[in-house]
Amino acid sequence: MSETAIRRASLWDFANPTRYLAIAGPAIPWLAGVTALLLAAGLWMSFRAPADYQQGATVLIMFIHVPAAWLSMFCYGVMSVSALGTLVWRHPLADVSLRAAAPVGAVFTLLALVTGSLWGKPMWGAWWVWDARLTSVLVLFIIYLGLLALARAIEDPATAARALAVVTLVGSVNLPIIKFSVNWWNTLHQPASVMRMDGPKMDPAFLYPLLVMALAYTLFFITLHAMNMRNEILRRRIRSMRMNAAREAGGA
């Protein structure tokens, strides 16, 4: 049997944008369908969960807050891997992936912050507290905003790709440092009342809906990411067509 037949599929199969479009096009509706099913299942399970004896009905917010927070970090992870793809492996679609993910990650981070506020006010009496986790997520949000600003500011795609990749990686290297320092700062300035952000130990009645919602959110991101990558590829095609036309017009 020839070598090519036994070759395992790899990310390099997607290296060609045309190939990516051909694969992503039919895949996206399926991904969207699975996402919708999971979301429906998750919501149904969430609303059937009993009211938590400590938190009352506000535990419902947990089912959309925690997945948003997980996704904000998962998204940055995807961006970091993409950044490595640009700098180390020079994968042609790595930059496309980073740009497609950045706004989505920013939205998830903001969602985590806002839903967290709405959960915090009835539960712990404050819209915002400077505890380690909230502060770290706020800093992550600022990192996202910086990356988005940078993406808009640099015109040349190649320069922008490298810049975004480097800044994303420097950011990810620093995330443990930031988390550690914020934790340190927070333990020094421990607020008077002890906050228990985790709530009581997770009962399966709450854990299962949470996991399903987390899975639904993850698939939502994957679907959306595939869609956004497709749009970014189209955008680059348009750009190269226009530049080609300008070049030919100039030469004619």
Partner: peptide, 23 residues
């Protein structure tokens, strides 16, 4: 929702708006 509706509903509505908006 008890008296927490004022918090739960906006949380879900904003999340829905954000996700639908992204799509």
């Amino acid at each position: 929702f008890g008296n927490y509706a004022g918090y739960i509903v906006p949380a879900y509505v904003l999340s829905a708006l954000a996700l639908v908006g992204l799509v």
